[in-house]
């Protein structure tokens, strides 16, 4: 017998409140091209991205600490498959421990030729020093795509 299928394409738009901690973080990126973390008053650890509280101690964080722009690669991968609303592959992304931070920040790596995966992976080797770069001021929107990492 004839078997039917039904295709549905939902378009729901979500408008998420970022809260004051993430808002301040992204405003600093947008307006001043600087990255900040939050210090846990209990342990002194600097959490990046910033958190209002430490999920280890459940104590509120107490102060803003500027981190980076230098750092080292904690881990990376190179993506060869396309995603919706993301750059055309291939591209590299991963996590960087910025100078002064105790947790690593996710972001894209740029400026490395990804045509040969093994050669690219060697350049992005874990532990390699990188520096945070920012889009031009008039292009920055206050989001995670305002900055990326390049080999130092």
């Amino acid at each position: 017998m004839e078997l039917l299928k039904r295709q549905e394409d939902w378009k729901i738009t979500y408008t998420h409140a970022l809260g004051e901690v993430a808002s301040w973080f992204f405003v600093q990126i947008r307006d001043n091209a600087k990255i900040f973390g939050r210090r846990c008053g209990d342990t002194g650890r600097v959490l990046v991205p910033p958190r209002a509280f430490s999920d280890q101690t459940l104590e509120p964080t107490t102060e803003w600490v500027e981190v980076g722009p230098g750092g080292k690669i904690e881990t990376f991968t190179i993506v060869y498959e396309p995603f919706n609303n993301l750059p055309e592959p291939p591209y590299a992304f991963g996590y960087v421990l910025l100078d002064g931070a105790d947790t690593a920040l996710g972001g894209y790596f740029r400026g490395v030729d990804l045509a040969d995966p093994a050669a690219a992976a060697e350049k992005l080797k874990i532990g390699t020093r990188v520096v945070t770069k920012f889009a031009d001021k008039d292009k920055r929107k206050g989001d995670m795509l305002d900055f990326w990492f390049e080999l130092a």
Binding site: T75, V79, F83, F93, G106, Y108, A121, D143, M144
Partner: peptide, 22 residues
């Protein structure tokens, strides 16, 4: 989370690859 990670190609395979590299 929609705050810090949604703009990354973060599906389970990507996360497993990041762990593999580490």
């Amino acid at each position: 989370d929609p705050y810090f990670h949604r703009a990354l190609p973060l599906d389970e395979l990507s996360s497993n690859a990041l762990q593999a590299a580490a």
